[in-house]
């Protein structure tokens, strides 16, 4: 059973704005019955103010698809079209108190339906940028073509890199064998084309490399002899340690075009601001968790990282 938040359940059991809208100003149809998800979004727009005055939806899909559709209508009603278009699929997920990673595509469907409906209202053609090819990572909807392109354009040679660049394999990890196959195939082709040195290429049969860890200074048994309660940190010490930890993480965030800044510390609550590519990223909550883990490790006491 999926772990749906209470908000998702509420919006599934009692969806708001479900049904047909007669004479809608714009209609967006996305999804496909073969995929088990399809959504029709209908919007009414006041042409004088360009404001969405009403929205309705019809959805064929699972619990989170229905909840995401309903959440979308709640989010856009009362907004101008430009304001509505600023919404990301993460906003839909956040509105619902989060979605399981495997269900994030439901919020993406809402995001795309809005674009389709606006295009329909404006009389433009809307084309989705969905890629062709076998779907490899079902959690993030990453297909073979997307992985191959990322590998080629960026000269990727490890599974971790592919996950960082495409998110593929970043959630349930059941597709790792599939990613490795695409990576090996693409790297092999790049070697043949002279784009990659053979010694760099991903080789699934490569021998295990030794990982040298720093030797422990004392017997591992001695660890248990340390006092269990660490001396309480002063606020200043705490802030310094947090700053240091964030500094250590920054290169990884920047690598993905994002950044993180410390705003304030109140007791065990650490307020941070995510910026750059982190904003609206599907993985933002994963990033926040990562920052939190690192801080807990460094400070040796429980705390919560809250994006503001």
């Amino acid at each position: 059973m999926w772990e749906y938040s209470e908000k998702v359940q509420e919006y599934f059991y009692n969806p708001k704005n479900a049904g047909v809208m007669e004479n809608a100003s714009g209609i967006g149809d996305v999804g496909a019955i073969s995929c088990g998800d399809a959504l029709r979004l209908m919007i009414r727009v006041d042409p004088a103010t360009d404001t969405i005055t009403d929205a309705k939806f019809q959805t064929f899909g699972c619990g989170s698809a229905i909840a995401s559709s309903s959440a979308l209508t709640e989010l856009i009603i009362g907004k101008t079209i430009d304001q509505a278009l600023e919404l990301s699929n993460q906003d839909i997920a956040d509105f619902l108190g989060g979605l399981p990673p495997e269900k994030m595509h439901c919020s993406v469907m809402g995001y795309e339906a809005l674009r389709a409906a606006v295009a329909n209202y404006r009389g433009e053609a809307w084309e989705d940028d969905h890629e062709e090819g076998a779907l490899i990572c079902k959690c993030f909807g990453v297909d073979e073509g997307m992985i191959e392109r990322a590998v080629r354009m960026n000269g990727l040679t490890t599974l971790e890199q592919v996950t960082h660049f495409t998110k593929a394999g970043g959630s349930c990890a059941t597709c790792i064998e599939g990613i490795e196959e695409v990576l090996a195939k693409t790297n092999a082709a790049m070697v043949v084309e002279g784009l990659l040195d053979a010694s760099e290429a991903f080789d699934p049969n490569e021998a295990v490399r030794p990982v040298r860890r720093p030797k422990a200074g004392k017997s591992p048994l001695a660890v248990t002899l340390e006092p269990l309660t660490k001396p309480k940190l002063t606020n200043l010490q705490k802030i310094r340690l947090i700053e240091e930890a964030i500094e250590g993480l920054r290169p990884f965030l920047r690598q993905d075009g994002g950044d993180c800044e410390l705003i304030d510390v109140e007791g065990d609550r650490v307020m941070v601001k995510l910026s750059g590519a982190c904003v609206g990223c599907q993985m933002a909550s994963v990033t926040v968790n990562g920052v939190q883990e690192r801080l807990i490790e460094k400070l040796g006491q429980p705390l919560r990282v809250i994006p503001v």
């Binding site: 969806p15 479900a18 049904g19 047909v20 149809d29 996305v30 999804g31 496909a32 019955i33 995929c35 399809a38 959504l39 029709r40 019809q58 959805t59 064929f60 229905i66 993406v108 469907m109 795309e112 339906a113 389709a116 809307w126 084309e127 989705d128 969905h130």
Partner: peptide, 24 residues
């Protein structure tokens, strides 16, 4: 009643081809 493939208590949009979404 929530499904775009269903209209007025019968298979609707799906059969009269009114609902023909873009793959997303």
């Amino acid at each position: 009643s929530l499904s775009p493939f269903w209209k007025d208590k019968r298979p609707g949009a799906a059969t009269d081809a009114a609902f023909n979404p873009t793959y997303a």
